[in-house]
Protein backbone atom coordinates (compact mmCIF):
# COMPACT_ATOMS: atom_id res chain seq x y z
CA UNK A 1 0.00 0.00 0.00
CA UNK A 2 1.26 3.40 -0.88
CA UNK A 3 1.79 6.00 1.81
CA UNK A 4 -0.81 8.30 0.25
CA UNK A 5 -3.74 6.05 1.07
CA UNK A 6 -2.91 6.08 4.77
CA UNK A 7 -2.40 9.82 4.77
CA UNK A 8 -5.74 10.39 3.00
CA UNK A 9 -7.49 8.17 5.54
CA UNK A 10 -5.75 10.05 8.33
CA UNK A 11 -6.90 13.38 6.86
CA UNK A 12 -10.48 12.13 6.61
CA UNK A 13 -10.49 10.90 10.21
CA UNK A 14 -9.03 14.19 11.42
CA UNK A 15 -11.69 16.13 9.53
CA UNK A 16 -14.43 14.00 11.07
CA UNK A 17 -13.06 14.96 14.46
CA UNK A 18 -12.99 18.65 13.54
CA UNK A 19 -16.57 18.56 12.27
CA UNK A 20 -17.60 16.79 15.47
CA UNK A 21 -16.07 19.53 17.61
CA UNK A 22 -17.88 22.14 15.50
CA UNK A 23 -21.38 20.65 15.43
CA UNK A 24 -21.77 18.87 18.76
CA UNK A 25 -22.50 20.72 21.99
CA UNK A 26 -22.00 17.87 24.45
CA UNK A 27 -18.66 18.33 26.21
CA UNK A 28 -18.02 14.58 26.44
CA UNK A 29 -18.57 14.05 22.72
CA UNK A 30 -16.37 17.02 21.90
CA UNK A 31 -13.73 15.41 24.07
CA UNK A 32 -14.09 12.14 22.17
CA UNK A 33 -13.64 14.03 18.90
CA UNK A 34 -10.35 15.41 20.20
CA UNK A 35 -9.23 11.84 20.87
CA UNK A 36 -10.26 11.01 17.32
CA UNK A 37 -8.05 13.78 15.96
CA UNK A 38 -5.08 12.65 18.05
CA UNK A 39 -5.57 9.17 16.67
CA UNK A 40 -5.68 10.39 13.09
CA UNK A 41 -2.33 12.06 13.73
CA UNK A 42 -1.01 8.80 15.17
CA UNK A 43 -2.01 6.99 12.00
CA UNK A 44 -0.05 9.48 9.90
CA UNK A 45 2.96 9.09 12.22
CA UNK A 46 2.99 5.32 11.92
CA UNK A 47 2.43 5.37 8.16
CA UNK A 48 5.34 7.75 7.61
CA UNK A 49 7.52 5.80 10.04
CA UNK A 50 6.89 2.68 7.97
CA UNK A 51 7.65 4.41 4.71
CA UNK A 52 10.91 5.82 6.11
CA UNK A 53 11.75 2.39 7.52
CA UNK A 54 12.57 3.59 11.04
CA UNK A 55 10.85 3.61 14.40
CA UNK A 56 10.95 7.31 15.30
CA UNK A 57 7.35 7.89 14.24
CA UNK A 58 6.21 5.14 16.55
CA UNK A 59 8.12 6.68 19.44
CA UNK A 60 6.11 9.84 18.82
CA UNK A 61 2.89 7.82 18.86
CA UNK A 62 3.96 6.56 22.27
CA UNK A 63 4.31 10.15 23.50
CA UNK A 64 0.98 11.17 22.00
CA UNK A 65 -0.73 8.29 23.80
CA UNK A 66 0.79 9.22 27.14
CA UNK A 67 -0.25 12.83 26.78
CA UNK A 68 -3.73 11.76 25.66
CA UNK A 69 -4.09 9.59 28.75
CA UNK A 70 -3.11 12.48 31.04
CA UNK A 71 -5.42 14.82 29.18
CA UNK A 72 -8.39 12.45 29.46
CA UNK A 73 -7.92 12.03 33.20
CA UNK A 74 -7.88 15.78 33.82
CA UNK A 75 -10.53 16.61 31.24
CA UNK A 76 -13.02 14.12 32.60
CA UNK A 77 -12.38 15.32 36.16
CA UNK A 78 -13.14 18.87 34.99
CA UNK A 79 -16.30 17.72 33.19
CA UNK A 80 -17.50 15.91 36.30
CA UNK A 81 -16.93 18.92 38.54
CA UNK A 82 -18.55 21.27 36.01
CA UNK A 83 -21.55 18.98 35.89
CA UNK A 84 -21.76 18.95 39.67
CA UNK A 85 -21.81 22.74 39.77
CA UNK A 86 -24.03 23.58 36.84
CA UNK A 87 -26.00 20.38 36.11
CA UNK A 88 -25.15 20.63 32.41
CA UNK A 89 -22.30 19.81 30.12
CA UNK A 90 -23.59 21.76 27.14
CA UNK A 91 -20.59 23.85 26.19
CA UNK A 92 -22.82 26.77 25.19
CA UNK A 93 -24.41 26.98 28.62
CA UNK A 94 -21.17 26.60 30.55
CA UNK A 95 -20.03 30.18 30.06
CA UNK A 96 -19.16 31.50 33.47
CA UNK A 97 -15.82 30.87 35.10
CA UNK A 98 -17.22 31.38 38.58
CA UNK A 99 -19.43 28.52 39.72
Amino acid sequence: MALEYYLVLSALLFTTGVIGVLIRRNAIIIFMCIELMLNAANLAFVAISRSLGEATGQVFVFFVMTVAAAEVAIGLAIIVSVFKHQQTINVDEVNSLKG
Binding site: V8, A11, T15, V18, L22
Partner: peptide, 16 residues
Protein backbone atom coordinates in the same frame (compact mmCIF):
# COMPACT_ATOMS: atom_id res chain seq x y z
CA UNK B 1 -19.54 23.76 9.73
CA UNK B 2 -19.95 20.70 7.54
CA UNK B 3 -19.08 22.61 4.36
CA UNK B 4 -15.96 24.01 6.02
CA UNK B 5 -15.11 20.52 7.18
CA UNK B 6 -15.37 19.14 3.65
CA UNK B 7 -13.11 21.93 2.39
CA UNK B 8 -10.66 21.09 5.15
CA UNK B 9 -10.75 17.42 4.18
CA UNK B 10 -10.12 18.30 0.53
CA UNK B 11 -7.13 20.34 1.61
CA UNK B 12 -5.79 17.48 3.67
CA UNK B 13 -6.19 15.03 0.81
CA UNK B 14 -4.46 17.44 -1.58
CA UNK B 15 -1.53 17.75 0.78
CA UNK B 16 -1.35 14.00 1.31
Amino acid sequence: AIILGILFAAEGIYIA
